[in-house]
Structure formats: C-alpha cells, structure tokens
Design a binder for these strands. Structure first.
Length: 924
RNA sequence: GCGGAUGUGGCGAAAUUGGUAGACGCACUAGACUUAGGAUCUAGCGCUGCGAGGCAUGGGGGUUCGAGUCCCUCCAUCCGCACCA
C-alpha cells in the first residue's frame, strides 16, 4: 500500500456497502428515528453535472453523522419520472417516454453511486411506476370524495355534507365552495335528480371539474399552472401562453389558504421561503361592499381593504371580463364598450404587464350609488382591474390609491380628499396611504386610518351594505394536463357526469398509443388509445395529472415503498412521522412545497398521517454555477487574440470548452482539434500564452462550461469531490464551480494518508499513548465538526479537518487512539478513505457502526492564555497568564508591568476590563 | 413599486454570544530536495511605512472601553412578487 489510490479504494467500498446492504433501513423502535430527504430529481437526458449532487452531499453528511450518533436514519432517493422533456422527445422520435426515462434513471443511479451516497435503494420510488401512481390516483379519489368544513376547519368525507343537505339544506353549511353556489333547502336537494345532485356536489369537492380560465399554451398543447408561466411564456420551452376558458379539474387548495399560512409559524424554514409562500397566498383583510346600480336591481360587489375611504369613492371600475358589464352598459356606449373589451382581451398577458403605465378604460354610461352618502358615481371598465382577484370590481378612491389617482387624472374624474395630515397628499413624493386622519367622511372624521377601518366595517355590517372579508390571492390549482406522460386521472363519465373509479380498479394504467400527440379533433393524446374505457364501457378521462401530483406525497411512500394495500402502512408512517430535514432548491417555493403541504394537511385531516406539516426543517442549497471561458476571434479572420490584447482589435467572443483551458490559459493544440474549422486557427499571444476571458453563468451544454462529476471522481476521487463541494462555501449560497481549488482538498487527503504510511508504504501507526497536544488537536476537531453539522455549516468543517491533519503532521503524530477517532469524525465527509484506513487499523466492522466520539473539555483546556492588552480599545501588547490567575491578579500584574506603564504615561486608568480568555482593556 | 437577501485581500471564504479581522484553501513570490516536477517540504503574502506605527470588513454617521457583528442613513449587486384594490 504505497500511495493513496482513490480508484481502488472507492470501488472496493462501494461494492462492500452494496453487498452488505449497509444502508438498508428498517423500522427499529429501539432507536430514535431521523428522516433526511433530498428533493428527488427529474431524470433528464443530460445526466448530472457537478452542481446537482451539492445538496445530496450535505444530506449524506447529516445521514452518516446521525447514524454515528445512534439514530435510525431514513435517507432515500427516487425519481420524479413523469414530465415534459421525455414526452417532447417522444413526440419527436416516437420513442416511448418510459424507455427514455428508464435509460436516464440508470445513468443517474450510476453517477450517484460513484459519489458514495448512503441511499437505501431498496426504497427507491418512481412516480411513473403504476405501483406508485396507483396511490397518487387513490389520493385523488380521496380528495374527490371530500369537502372542507370551515366550522371544524378540516376536510371531511362528502357523505357528511350530503347528510347535512338532507337534513337542513346548505344555508347553515360553512364550507369552502364555489363563490356562486346558490342557497338550497332540504326540499330543493330532495327534488334534484342524481345528475343534478352530483353537479351540485362538485361545487364542494376538494377536487372538482369546472369551467375555468386557464393558461393555455398552444405550442405545448396543454394548460399550465400559474407558476409554470413566467411573464406570459411557458417556463419550459418559452412558448407563448394565452388565457382561455376550459373545463378542467382543479384542486381546492384555497380551502387550506389560512392553514397553509398559519402552519408556516410552526416549521423551521428559511424566512425568504416562508415569505414567498405568504406572498403567494396573499392574505388581505378588508370588506366586501355592495354598490347599487342606478335604475337597476343589480348590485356590484367590490372588495376593498380600505372601507374607511368609501366617502372618497368617485367611480367604480370593473374588469373587462366582469360578468355584469354587458348588462350595465347603456345603449349609447354599447359600441365603445364592445370595442374596448375586444382590445383589452386581445392584449396578451405579457403586453398587459409590460405596459403598466398606459392608462386605458371606458365609461359604460351607467351609474352606481355610493352606499355611504347616496351619491351618483360613474361605472367604468378598465384593464387595470383584474378579473381574477377579489370580485373583479374596484371602488376607486383617487385620493388614496395611486392607480385610481392616475386613472382619475387621465379621464378627468373628480378627486375627493378623505385624509389629512403629513403624507396624505397623493401628488407628493412622501405619500403614504396609511397616514393621517379622516376628513370629509361624516362619522369617520378625525379618526386615524386603523380605527376608521374598524368603525367603517362595523357600519357596513350593521347597515347590511356588505361584510368584513378576508381575501386570498391564491387561486385553486388547475389539475388537468393535456399530455400523455403523466398519471391518468381515475375518472369516467356517465351521462356527461364525472364519477371516480372504484379504488379496486386502481391503478388505472397509462394506455399505449401510436403517437404522443393530440388527436386530430384536438383531444389530449389519451384520446388515441384504443378502448380506453371502463369495464362497463364508460369513457375515461383523457387528461392526465400535472407534474406536481406525484411529488406531492412521495416523501410518505419512502416510509413503506412496497406496501400494496395502503399508500403507506400505519405503523411505519407513525414511526417515521415527518421529514426531519429536507434539502432542495428554492425554486420550488410556490409549487411543490406548497402542494405537498396541502396534500399532507388533507391526509392529516382524514387521519391518514400523523403530522400536519410534512417538512420540519428545510434548507435551500444554492446552485453551483458554471465558469465559462471565452476566446476572441478577430472579426473576418480565423485569428484569435489573447484576452489582454483584445482591445487592439475588433473581436467577437466565443465560448470555449472549459476542459481545454487551465487557469484561464488555452491549450492551443487541443483548441485546434476541438472543431474542424479551428484546425488552421492562428493566435495573438500574451507572454507566449493565450489567456481566455471568463464569466460566471448557469452550467449548460451550450456554454461549454459543464463539469461532469464522473470526470472529477475519476481524477481525484469521490471523497475529494464531496469535500470540495462542501469546502466551496456556505451550502445556501450560489457559487461558481472552479476546478482549480480542488487540489487543496486532494492534498489534504494525501496528507491524511501519509499519517498512516511511510514512504515505503509501511504502516507507521503505533499504540503509544497520545500526548496532550494530540488530544487537543483531535478534540477540538470533534467539537468543532459536531457544532458545524448541527448548524449546517459544512464548509468550515473541511477547514477544521485540514487544520487537524496539519497539526498532527507537524507533531509527527501516528497514535492509533487519535487517528481512529479522527476517521470516525471525518467519515461523513470522506467515507471511502475513512473506511479504508479504519480497516487498515485492524477494525473488523464497517465504520458506519462505530460511535461518534465525544469531545472532552479536559483535552481542550489550556493551562495559560495570552491576553491582548489594549488601552482605550487599541491593542498595545500581549501578556500570558495561567488560567487560574484571578482577574484581580491579572489587573495588578498588568498595571505593574513596565510596558503598560510606558503606554499609560503616568496616568491612572479609570476603568480596567478583564474578560476571561478574551482581553484586558484599560480605559484612561 | 413592494418584499427579501448580500456587500470582508488578487480569488473562494472564516470570525457561533460585540472582544487579537482575514482562520483554511486557491493563486502568487522566494528558497530547499531533485535529471526533472503539474510531487513534497520551508518561509512570505490586506494596504501603507526603513521602522515604531498608521489605515483597513460598500460609503457616511451613532451607541460602546471595544463594532465585520448592534442602531440610523445612503449606495451597489442579486433574488422573489408585481396594475393584488
């Protein structure tokens, strides 16, 4: 055994772990449990780059650490294997997505295994496997058969709702349901036929079929969820998205808005992540106010957070899509209104957003009555009013709202001041709508804003003009996708009414089809399947579930992945309870993480899971970015100029493969061979070298800056990769990958190796008793690393290891007692080399079964301490005292010392501060 | 516009409770051993000054014996949301 040979060592231990099932986890009641989870990946065709394993390495360190600490650790991995790219590929090539997916998964597993993770692969889940999605469909059915009872504040079986209808109608039912649900009596209910009853129940079900405005992406041929649309374009592919009304399945997540908000207080997540969810849920408290329309019986309902300003309302504004628009519009304005709606409707979402400053609107000819003072106000339609928020109608108070103000100015509408005091003038810079006291507002005059709001709401409710209302921005989640590669929705249609499949019929397996495209008649791809019907011959739902369906509960399946009778066994669920630590990217804030919390809360309501919140602690790992290199071609030639000289020429920059660049210096020969057109390239060099430019960008194939972990593992080993990724900086931070620095970590491992072997490869470890210095080095390391892991500061641990090994090298230490414990502490970070050296020391069992050593204070205590002596906070000198010297004695000696007397220049200090083991400060 | 974060050497970064700022690593410089070094070891490495010293944590101010850390203010960069009534 001469040199540190990572290849042999890592191959050996990875096989050993596999053969011995070292990381197979069972439910072990005798040990405390710990559940560490990574966000499972979508297996893309590009494979892993060095950025992907970052979070997995961190979670693996925690897993190994917790094991050594005596915990029974669940650390699983799986694949979010339904998804668009595989389907797009299928559309183009005709290759079944299952085949592509399978291929990508095996590539991913191979790459992951190379890094030496502790994943228990026997628990692997794949969302696209029928034995998994059977239970995704099952949860869908549970949601379909449930409603949300606001009185008990939880989901209940739909049967309990039916019973209520039969007994007392729906007037006393306080449920999360459609806005326009009519009030029905017992008689009404009893007179309905089955079809009518089922249609009525859809208004209450937690997953329901409804005509909804959706984000339709013509290029992808599917609808997209709000968070899948960015600035009017699809997140994947960047295709335009339009608004369209379609019959779609939706999830009534709005029923859980308040609990999703409240739950955030109970979990340990990064504050920005919670804020994003709060923002998304968008709770605002205010009131709904009814405005009578002059000469008509209709009323317009508006939502406002500022009822107190009602005396300042000078017009009403409706969204162009508002349902009352056509009814209200007077004949003489009909033409103009129609025109305006057309223009507004044709403007794409993107136009509307990028064009915030353009003010447009149209008077309808109708007037409403201000309920607070019986005054006529004009009704306008305006596209600054959103149909999807509140009631789609706004009471405009130009003196208190900047948009209303701009609109009023533009169309010369009156402005009534209702607040006075500093900051209440809307035309001024310092305008703050919450400042000042009320004026021109009758019974509210003289009140500050906060009190005025309360009094106004009370007034509104007393007079029956409306009611206090909490409004949430979060909409229900559209659940239908017109795609092939997703879970079939377990629903069939009889007489045009949706029925859920019987649980016994699950899984409803994805049928084979000839082509992965919509049908000629515009039906989703499943419309191509032959005989896609129930046994009785009823047609099945042709839409599939969205990507987030399978990922909304996978963390539960890991607890009991093979269970064929339940989505997760009761006992096992109770034991593993909740994910203790969840590591993943921040981009899932308003998607996956919100949906998972929703489904988990629903399952909790049904008594199927133990915990109300699925993820106790969440950490967002930062992305590892690429560091791209550039060459500069002189325009019109095949000549390339070095970075420092490019100013002398007209050049164009090109990405160059980072693998043929070292320290920003280009390998000229490799460059010529890189592409055929570069074979006769010429160069303008600096000091005989070609220096490349560089930039930090996202890692991507097209930028030639992708670093494959396999290459790093091959050259330096998995342990080096693991240590280096941690060493790069704080886990949460975004940071560029820089292969240069990896040498330092690699050197550290070789230095560690040399603590065990001499130059000739002979083992030089002895059984001698360690010295106090050696104990100190070890125990400082144990203490520091343990603290680091507990606060997820993995980067500082790596430094600690380096310092420890440097110290031991300097001490020429080779004591078994020290080295053995050091290996245990190091093993979560660098498991392969630790196991190998552990074995070299003569240990029979794998290091995984060892106990994490305890740090002991007695080894850390020094007998003396060098105190910095400062005068008025300025460091002047240093003096050493033994630790048992009392502060009084230190004071005395410091004052007596010649040096300090020199600094004091005969003055007596006013104050002397002695901070034990910190500092002595004299204040003159 | 609203919300959130971040700002420390040439670079990645440490500094956990206010207590010797820059640990550890990269890069760089010099030296040793070497036929050689992309191996190893030793030393140096914030700025400034011959030196004692002085100045330094985005800028300015404050609290304190003492501030990277706490408070105020301004600036820059990044991220999220964005006509949310």
């Amino acid at each position: 055994m001469a040199d540190y040979n990572h290849k042999d060592i890592e191959r050996f231990w990875q096989n050993y772990w596999k053969e011995n099932n070292t990381f197979k986890t069972t439910t072990d009641q005798s040990k405390p449990k710990y559940y560490v989870l990574d966000m499972f990946p979508y297996p893309s065709g590009a494979g892993l780059h060095v950025g992907h394993p970052l979070g997995y390495i961190a979670s693996d360190i925690v897993s190994r650490f917790k094991r050594l600490k005596g915990f029974n650790v669940l650390h699983p991995m799986g694949f979010d294997s339904f998804g668009l790219p595989a389907e797009q590929y299928a559309v183009q090539t005709g290759q079944h997505p299952a085949i592509t997916t399978e291929k990508n998964i095996s590539r991913y597993k191979e790459q992951l295994d190379n890094i030496g993770f502790t994943f228990d692969w026997s628990r692997e889940v794949r969302t696209s496997e029928p034995n998994y999605y059977k239970w995704t469909q099952w949860i869908f059915i549970q949601l379909f058969h449930s409603w949300y009872n606001k009185a008990t504040d939880k989901a209940e079986p739909i049967q309990s709702l039916i019973e209520k209808f039969e007994k007392e109608g729906n007037s006393k039912v306080n449920a999360a349901c459609d806005e326009e649900t009519p009030v029905i009596s017992v008689e009404d209910w009893k007179q309905m036929n089955e079809k009518e009853k089922l249609e009525f129940l859809l208004r209450y079900r937690l997953t329901y079929l409804a005509d909804t405005m959706v984000n339709w992406c013509p290029a992808l041929g599917t609808v997209l969820a709000n968070e899948e649309v960015k600035d009017g374009f699809s997140e994947r592919g960047g295709f335009p998205v339009v608004r369209k009304k379609m019959s779609q399945w939706s999830m009534r997540i709005s029923a859980y808005a308040e609990r999703l908000l409240q739950g955030l207080e109970t979990i340990d997540w990064p504050e920005p992540m919670k804020d994003m969810q709060r923002n998304w849920i968008g709770k605002s408290m205010g009131a709904e106010l009814l405005f009578k329309v002059e000469g008509k019986s209709t009323e317009i309902k508006v939502f406002t957070t500022r009822v107190d300003t009602t005396f300042g309302v000078t017009y009403l504004a409706l969204a162009p899509e508002h349902e009352l628009v056509s009814e209200l519009t007077t004949p003489e304005y009909a033409e103009k209104v129609k025109e305006y709606i057309e223009i507004a409707g044709n403007r794409s979402e993107r136009d509307r957003m990028s064009d915030v400053k353009t003010i447009s609107g149209q008077f309808t000819g109708a007037y409403a009555i201000n309920p607070f003072k019986d005054e006529k106000i004009p009704i306008w339609i305006a596209d600054y009013v959103l149909a999807g928020y509140g009631t789609g109608a706004v009471m405009a108070v130009p003196s208190s709202d900047t948009r209303d103000y701009a609109f009023a100015k533009h169309f010369n509408l009156p402005i009534i001041q209702v607040q006075e005091g500093e900051g209440t003038d809307i035309s001024q810079e310092n305008f703050d709508p919450k400042k000042g006291t009320m004026i021109n507002s009758d019974f509210l005059n003289g009140l500050p804003v906060k009190e005025a709001i309360q009094k106004a709401i009370a007034f509104v409710e007393e007079k029956g003009l409306g009611k206090g209302k909490i409004n949430y921005r979060m909409r229900d989640a559209i659940f239908s996708r017109q795609r092939y590669w997703g879970e079939p929705i377990p629903v069939y249609y009889k007489d045009g009414i949706a029925y859920s499949l019987d649980e016994k019929e699950l899984p409803l397996v994805l049928p084979e089809i000839d082509e992965y495209k919509p049908t000629e008649t515009g039906e989703p791809p499943l419309g191509r399947a032959k005989n896609f019907k129930t046994k009785e011959g009823y047609p099945l739902e042709l839409n599939t579930m969205p990507g987030w369906a399978g990922s909304s509960w996978y963390f539960l399946r890991y607890m009991d992945p093979k269970n064929e009778d339940r989505f997760v066994g009761k006992e096992k669920e109770k034991y593993w309870n909740q994910v203790d630590l969840y590591i993943g990217g921040a981009e899932h804030a308003t998607g996956h993480l919100l949906y998972s919390r929703f489904w988990n809360k629903f399952l909790f309501d049904l008594g199927l899971v133990t915990s109300d919140e699925p993820f106790k602690k969440l950490i967002n790992q930062g992305m590892i970015q690429g560091r791209s290199n550039f060459v500069y071609r002189i325009n019109g030639t095949n000549k390339y100029v070095s970075y420092g000289l490019k100013g002398n020429y007209e050049t164009t920059a090109f990405h160059v493969d980072v693998n043929i660049v070292q320290n920003d210096v280009l390998d000229l020969e490799a460059f010529k061979k890189w592409r055929p057109d570069l074979a006769d390239a010429e160069f303008v060099l600096e000091d005989g070298k070609y220096n490349c430019g560089h930039e930090v960008e996202k890692m991507s194939k097209s930028k030639y800056n992708v670093v494959n972990p396999d290459d790093i593992v091959d050259q330096y080993g998995a342990d080096t990769l693991r240590l280096y990724e941690m060493f790069l900086g704080p886990l949460e931070q975004f940071k560029p990958w820089n292969t240069q620095g990896i040498e330092g970590v690699y050197k550290f491992l070789r230095k560690l190796w040399r603590l065990f072997f001499d130059e000739k490869g002979g083992l030089k470890v002895t059984d001698q008793a360690p010295t106090p210095e050696e104990f100190k080095a070890l125990h400082q390391t144990i203490k520091k690393v343990e603290e680091d892991i507990n606060r997820y500061s993995f980067n500082t641990s790596v430094s600690t290891f380096m310092i420890c090994v440097n110290t031991l090298s300097e001490l020429k230490s080779n004591k078994k007692a020290i080295l053995q414990d050091l290996l245990i502490v190091l093993s979560p970070y660098a498991p392969h080399i630790s196991e190998e050296l552990w074995k070299v020391l003569g240990n029979k069992e794998s290091i995984t079964y060892a106990q994490y050593p305890k740090w002991e204070e007695k080894y850390l205590i020094e007998d003396s301490f060098e105190y910095p002596i400062s005068i008025n906070g300025k460091l002047r000198t240093k003096m050493t005292f033994s630790l048992d010297t009392t502060p009084q004695e230190i004071e005395k000696s410091v004052l007596a010392s010649e040096q300090v007397q020199k600094w004091l220049e005969g003055k007596t200090p006013k104050k002397i501060i002695v901070v034990p083991k910190k500092i002595v400060n004299l204040v003159i």
